[in-house]
Computed example of a mutant assay.
Amino acid sequence: MPDYQPPLTLTPRMLALVAEISELVGRLSAQEQSRLTPQLRRGNRIRTIQASLAIENNTLSVEQVTAVLDGRRVLGLPAEIQEVRNAFAAYDAMAGWQPDSVEHLLTAHRLLMHGLLDDAGCYRAGGVGIYRGEKLLHMAPPPSRVALLMQDLLAWLAATELPALIASCVFHYEFEFIHPFADGNGRMGRLWQTLILSRWQPLLAYLPVETVIQTHQGEYYAALAEADKVSEASPFVLFMLGALREALLEAVAGDQVSDQVSDQVERLMAVLQPGVALKASELMELLHLSHRHSFGKSYLKPALAAGLIEMTDPASPRSPAQRYRRKLL
C-alpha cells in the first residue's frame, strides 16, 4: 500500500450515490451494448468533446465539431479547431492506456495539446495560479514537487481499494489540485476520470458526463474551491457522483425512448430525399410539425449526431440560408 492517501471522508450520501449509480449502470449495460452502434458512440463522443472544450471557453457548437471531424470547412479560430482534432485523437486512443501509467498520462497530454503548447506532454516548469477574474482561487504546488506528487497519486490509484466511482472522483480532484501541466489540466482531469471509469465499466467510455458538467459549470468550480477550503476531496466527490448519476439517468431515459427517437429520425429521413437539400422550416412542413424546439431536439440533432444528414453550410450553423441533406455514406 502506498504511503500517500488522499484526504477523504466517506459519507452516507456518497455511498448511497455509488449504490444508485451502480444500479443505473446495471440497468443500462444489459441492453446498451447492442444499442450502442458505432454512429451513436461517435455522437456521444462528439458531445463529450464539445462540452469538455466548451468548459475551457471553446466556442464551437456540436454541429461545428461534427463538421471538423468530418473534414469539412468550419469558420472558427484555428486554435479551437485544433483543440477539437486533438481531443478526438486523445479519446480515440484512450482504450490503449492504463490509468496508473505516467507514460500514458504524458502521451495523453501530448495528444490533447499538440500544436497548442510548446511543452505538451511535459510537466510544467513554472508556478501556476488559478484565477476567476482577478481573484486567486488556487495556487498549485511548486513545479519542483509536481513529478513526485503525480508519482504518489498514480501509485495510490493503482493500489486503492476504493470503488472505481469514488476513486475516479478523488483522482480528478487531486489532479486538478496538483495542476501538473502548464495548460490543459481541466480537460485532462475529465479525460482521465473517464479512462478510470471505463476500466470498471466499458460503456462509461461513451457516457457524455461532460455535458452535465458544462450545464453545472459554476457548481463544478465551486466544488473544487470547497474541496480546497476543507483540504479534502469530499465536496468534489459528491458533485461528480451527482453529475455521473444525472448523466446516467439521461442515458437510461434515452434508452427507454430509443425506439420512439429512431422512429422520429426515420420519419425525417423518409421526407428528405437523396440529392435534395431543405431548410428546417421546409422539413417541419413536410413532417407536419409546428414546434421548432421539439423538431430540433427529437429529429434534427439526433440525425446530425448519427451522421445521417449534414448541413450545406457547416461553417455557419445558424445561417438563415442553412439547409440539410442526406449524408453520403
Rank of each mutant, 00 (worst) to 15 (best):
E63G: 01
H114C: 04
A120H: 14
A182N: 06
V209F: 08
V74K: 08
T160I: 10
P99C: 07
G121P: 10
A225H: 14
L53K: 03
L241W: 11
G275A: 09
T215K: 14
S52C: 01
L283R: 00
I81N: 04
P274A: 11
E56D: 12
A164G: 12
A243R: 14
L154K: 11
L153A: 06
L10T: 09
K135E: 15
F175D: 06
H104Y: 06
D263Y: 09
L157R: 10
M139K: 11
N57W: 04
T48F: 01
G126C: 03
G307A: 01
I166G: 00
G26Q: 04
E246L: 13
Y220R: 07
V65L: 01
A120G: 14
P142E: 13
P163F: 05
S316Q: 15
F171Y: 12
H172V: 08
L136E: 15
V276F: 05
L197H: 01
L157Y: 06
Q217L: 08
G43Q: 00
D92C: 03
P143L: 04
L287C: 14
R145L: 13
G71D: 01
E250Y: 07
V230H: 05
K229H: 15
S144Q: 14
N86Q: 06
D263H: 11
L10Y: 05
S258P: 02
E161P: 02
P7M: 04
G189Y: 07
